[in-house]
Amino acid sequence: MTREQLEHVLRAVSRITEDPNVLVIGSQSILGSYSEHELPPEATGSMEVDTAFFSDPDETKSGLVDAMIGELSHFHNEFGYYPQGVSVSTGVFPAGWMDRLVTYETPGSSPGRGLCLEPHDCVLAKLVRFEKKDKPDRS
């Protein structure tokens, strides 16, 4: 994924949910701190952006994202990447993580802005979850 693609996702998600503050909690949150040119290809290889909202207690906004522009949607088929609506409770984050969020806001993301995990917090969250997709393939 590129920053331009992240901006597109932020723009689309914020318009659909009418919420400019899009929390980016998955691996692509690294793009809030670094451009794709500064990172190894493995760091930006995902075509999925995990998006959540602080003001979404019943997960209506996350569900709307999935239904309208999530995986296997017209958006996904047309662009080759997509947002996945998730809950803030999806992740396990270290104390103080909200104070370290990195704001990624550009003219291309308007009216949205990404509230991205700080890179160290992202790595810790991945290590805690340690899902199969987060483990290196040593085959």
Rank of each mutant, 00 (worst) to 15 (best):
L39Y: 04
P57E: 11
Y34R: 11
P40L: 15
T44Q: 09
P57R: 10
D56S: 04
S35T: 13
E42M: 11
T51W: 01
S29K: 09
F54W: 13
L39K: 08
S35P: 00
E42H: 04
T44M: 08
L39T: 02
S33G: 14
S29P: 13
T44N: 08
F54N: 11
L39D: 01
F53I: 02
D58A: 06
D50F: 00
A52R: 02
G45I: 12
E36K: 11
H37G: 11
P40K: 12
A52S: 10
M47R: 14
P41K: 12
E38H: 07
T44C: 09
I30L: 12
A52N: 03
Y34S: 05
S46T: 15
M47C: 09
G32N: 03
S55P: 05
S33M: 00
D50N: 08
D58L: 10
S35Y: 08
S46C: 03
D50R: 10
H37S: 12
H37V: 05
D50K: 08
F53L: 01
S55I: 06
T44L: 07
E36N: 10
D56R: 07
S29W: 10
S29V: 03
P41E: 15
G45W: 05
G32Y: 13
P41L: 15
L31F: 03
T44D: 09
S29E: 03
D56G: 03
D58R: 07
P57C: 10
P57A: 06
E42L: 10
D50Y: 01
G32W: 14
S35R: 12
A43T: 02
T51E: 03
